Computed example of a mutant assay.
Amino acid sequence: MGVKGKLIASVEVKCGGHLVHDIFHTKTHHISNICPSKIQNFEIHEGDSVKVGSVVSWKYNDDGKDKISKQMIEAIDHETKTITWKLIGGDLLELYNSFTIITSCDHEWTTWTFLYEKKTEDIPEPLVLLGFVLHVTKDIEGHLLK
């Protein structure tokens, strides 16, 4: 059994957290246009939109390396503006036995929570990825403020 971890980071978004949530929930396919240097592609494999049970994938560039993340949408709560994404494939699962990403938005804040289990103790904490998603959030904020 690996070492379990939890990372949480919040970033202020002047456009309002609800607008960031709307991008991730209903306009997810626009994210690759908003920040093309970070996100190259978003695709829905199962389902016709981002809804519970949908399987999606992202092609992204993290720390100068092209990567893939395949996820299942586990939960969406419209009241708390929360989406839970469970990894089911891709590069992160080479390092982690399990990895769940929770995005939530409240007023002028967007919060990212990572729940994960490292395969071994020497696997680094996913701090670079956390910084990456915070930068994507700020790119989305900049787009929405235009």
Rank of each mutant, 00 (worst) to 15 (best):
V20C: 08
G90E: 02
E43R: 01
V52C: 04
S37D: 09
H21L: 13
I34C: 05
S104F: 00
V55N: 02
I44P: 01
S104T: 01
G131C: 06
D106G: 05
K138F: 00
F99D: 03
Q71H: 14
E79T: 15
T110Q: 11
T137C: 00
T110W: 04
P124S: 10
K138V: 01
K138N: 01
I34E: 05
D122Y: 06
G64C: 07
V52Q: 07
S98H: 03
K51R: 14
G89D: 12
L130G: 03
K27E: 07
I68H: 15
T82I: 04
D22I: 02
E94V: 12
E117W: 02
G64F: 07
E125G: 02
C105S: 05
T100R: 11
S37I: 01
K59T: 09
S98P: 01
L127D: 15
I123P: 06
V136S: 06
I102R: 10
W85V: 13
K27R: 15
T120K: 12
Y96I: 09
Q71N: 12
T120W: 05
Y60E: 11
L92C: 10
S32E: 10
I83F: 07
T113S: 03
L115R: 09
T111S: 13
K27I: 03
L129K: 14
D139Q: 00
I76P: 09
W85T: 12
G47S: 03
F99N: 04
T110G: 06
Y96P: 06
T100P: 05
K38L: 04
V20F: 09
T80N: 07
T26Y: 13
D63H: 04
D62K: 13
P124I: 13
E74S: 12
V52Y: 02
K81E: 13
I102G: 06
N41W: 03
G89S: 09
D106Y: 11
A75S: 13
T26R: 11
T82G: 05
Y96F: 15
D122F: 04
K118M: 06
D62H: 15
F42S: 00
Y116E: 07
G53A: 01
L129I: 08
D62W: 15
D22K: 09
H45E: 04
S32C: 15
K38V: 00
A75D: 13
L95Y: 11
L134G: 00
I140D: 00
Q71I: 08
K86I: 05
I68S: 13
Y116L: 05
L127T: 14
Q71V: 10
N41M: 08
S32N: 12
L127V: 10
K119A: 10
T137P: 00
N33S: 15
E46H: 06
T111H: 09
T84N: 13
W109M: 11
T100D: 10
S98E: 07
I73K: 06
S104W: 00
V133H: 02
I123A: 08
E108A: 12
